[in-house]
Amino acid sequence: MNKPIIEVKELKTSFRTDEAEVPVVNGISFHINPGEILGIVGESGCGKSVTSLSIMGLVPSPSGKVEGEILFKGENLADAPESRMRKIRGNDIAMIFQEPMTSLNPVFTIGEQLIESIRIHRKWNKKMAEARAVEMLRLVGLPRAEDLIREYPHQLSGGMRQRVMIAMAMICDPALLIADEPTTALDVTIQAQILELMKKLNKETETAIMMITHDLGVVAEICERVAVMYSGRIVEEADVRTIFQDPKHPYTIGLIQSVPDMRDKKERLYSIPGNVPKPGAAQPGCPFAPRCAHAMDKCVTKTPSLKSLSDGQKVRCWLYEDGKGVKLNDTAIS
């Protein structure tokens, strides 16, 4: 395949809180190819949203600090000035958020917000922009597009608002769409429709998608490749089939076992005991060790590195350094 649209190298994002520097994203690297859908999975608080905000240059300053490289079409966004980032945001990289109910401005009409999104980046007149807005609303499957542009967000349902958000994000034809849990707040049938829509748009426009989620069901539905995040690090990366059929990292195995219906034998909803460690406590060793059934002495003292296995699968776990490995049928969790 051709060169990746975005390549993140050793991204570190930390926040300064009363003297202490709290690392939230701890040196993650991944890439997304043009037109590809990459899933980023992980429990709440593992740093998924902070990763996406780092790419967008929207980490709150001055408390936040971003280090490492974010190569977008070869340009390092990590040290691009705000004026450059503004040109990229919404135009080359667009974003949709988890909360469709509150992500649209309540005091402006749908049309005003869509038209504005174009006119920030293109010198179009109102009429052209409006025509494009209507076209986009149709594209995302909204009925009565001509009337809709005169309506306010509160007149729309959550699912409709998320469609509007998608239309708004796609309006400048971005090369990359970051979707931060776009379906989490929606009910199941609407979730499926939105995912279907994103898949369709990905095919039609060849926009690459970085799909952030904590739902492996979403990953199975639309992603081609997955990166599993745990406590600010990527612990495993593989294509979607491999992740479900041959997961390597004990955390990934635990995640898959906790998905209902994913493996029909399991009736009861399995969940990983323990909690995601709070960021800040930068201790040596594997951050998953307190919850891992396979933890060894080494695990608490030394941090494993991301090791490449066959087929581009990567895993960060001492078990694979020593060639032992775990099978999906094993109990992954203590």
Binding site: M56, L58, M85, R86, K87, I88, R89, G90, N91, A94, M95, F97, E99, T102, S103, L104, N105, P106, E116, S117, I120, H121, M165, M168
Partner: peptide, 10 residues
């Protein structure tokens, strides 16, 4: 959230 959206638009 909608202010974050506005910023994400560029």
């Amino acid at each position: 959230d909608y202010i974050r959206t506005a910023r994400a638009k560029g």
